[in-house]
Design a protein around this nucleic acid. Structure first.
Length: 360
DNA sequence: AATTCGTGGAC
DNA sequence: TGTCCAAGAAT
């Protein structure tokens, strides 16, 4: 146990010299720390830096967050990914006001009741915000500890994670757990990196089993991932006589939850791209719609999601009499630019308008 | 326990 | 080009 605290001390000494300067460092407002931890889930620091200040200026406290429309949260979240997090934040704000009169909890067990807050995030919030002695276990810590222990088990499996949690708890500083949590994440991000770890700069070099064995890059072990299937969609960019475009809102659950998009239909990945005539009959059959003028074939958009690859074939044309699928809206460009939309659909809409102005 | 959730940068 | 993966949680 004494050895563990020596290691913690060495890491803290490293941190005192080399800590990264980040917008959420030095905060003691649990609300602001909470927001940062949610944004940082599976998301790079450089991406979060672009969203964190704006989000906080629009939603400076729990009350503001709860009172804001979900669409407003999603708009400030768009492009950041994992949109369920924005839904969780909204639900969480209501929950905190309902159950705790808007006061953020100071106990880990209570934070675990908050939607979107799991074991590592709950620990991080109270370690960083209140210097409580909780251990975190994120991607950085898993990599650092797997190398430190030369862990022969996958960090994805139950047994491997159990070992890692125990190691994380033992190694955490009892005096400065908040700084320790940020220090070990910094270490993983800047020294114990995925490729080409800089072991010569590591405060744990002498005790690291993998480094002493000369093969730190062999760790961590991971489960084999299955291949990403190819999927395909047709995007129908309807516009009317007022040059307003048609949009639909996605389901409030699942992929890109509650975001807006042009009308989209699944298309078998092994079928060729449909031609103009096929699109005309498709619109007639599926929407009782009538295409006026030419069907424009726009540039296909490819997009990589976490577990599949998507190709979108966009088409643009004027329609007359359309069976609409609620929830929907017709908006001119200046207004649909304010709809929360995924990066994928921004790409689709962007290419369709910038490269080709509306005919007539 | 295994999947499902985005996006962009590094290599 | 493809592959990996980042302050994980929910289901």
């Amino acid at each position: 146990m004494a050895l563990c605290q020596q290691l913690a001390h060495a890491l803290l000494a490293y941190y005192d010299k080399h800590a990264r300067s980040l917008p959420w460092r030095g905060e003691n407002d649990l609300y602001r720390i909470w927001i940062s931890e949610i944004m940082l889930q599976q998301t790079g620091v450089s991406a979060v830096e672009k969203y964190y200040p704006k989000f906080l200026s629009h939603f400076p406290d729990v009350q503001t967050l709860a009172q804001a429309p979900l669409q407003s949260l999603l708009l400030h979240w768009q492009g950041l990914g994992y949109y369920q997090r924005a839904h969780h934040l909204h639900r969480a704000a209501h929950y905190i006001i309902q159950e705790w009169q808007g006061i953020l909890p100071e106990e880990r067990e209570l934070w675990l009741k908050v939607p979107g807050v799991g074991p590592s995030t709950a620990s991080a919030i109270l370690a960083i915000g209140r210097n409580q002695p909780h251990a975190i276990l994120d991607g950085n810590v898993k990599r650092v500890l797997a190398r430190f222990l030369a862990l022969q088990e996958s960090i994805d499996g139950r047994s491997g994670q159990k070992i890692l949690w125990q190691a994380a708890a033992r190694l955490t500083s009892k005096i400065r757990p908040g700084d320790y949590a940020q220090a070990i994440m910094d270490l993983g991000a800047t020294v114990c990196t995925r490729t080409q770890p800089r072991c010569d700069q590591c405060p744990w070099q002498m005790a690291c089993v993998a480094c002493n064995a000369g093969n730190p890059s062999a760790y961590p072990l991971r489960n084999t991932k299955k291949a990403k299937p190819n999927k395909c969609e047709v995007a129908l960019l309807f516009y009317n006589s007022e040059d307003k475009f048609y949009f639909e809102q996605r389901s409030e659950k699942g992929l890109l939850a509650s975001l807006w998009q042009p009308c989209s239909l699944p298309w078998s990945a092994d079928r060729a791209r449909p031609d103009a005539a096929t699109i005309r009959s498709l619109v007639q059959e599926s929407f009782a719609g009538h295409v006026e003028g030419a069907v424009e074939l726009l540039t296909p958009v490819e997009h990589l999601f976490t577990h599949f690859k998507l190709t979108v074939y966009p088409y643009r044309f004027r329609v007359h009499r359309l069976f609409e699928r609620a929830p929907y809206c017709w908006l001119p460009q200046v207004e649909w630019a304010q709809l929360p939309m995924a990066t994928l659909h921004q790409k689709v809409m962007h290419s369709s308008l910038i490269t080709k102005p509306l005919p007539g």
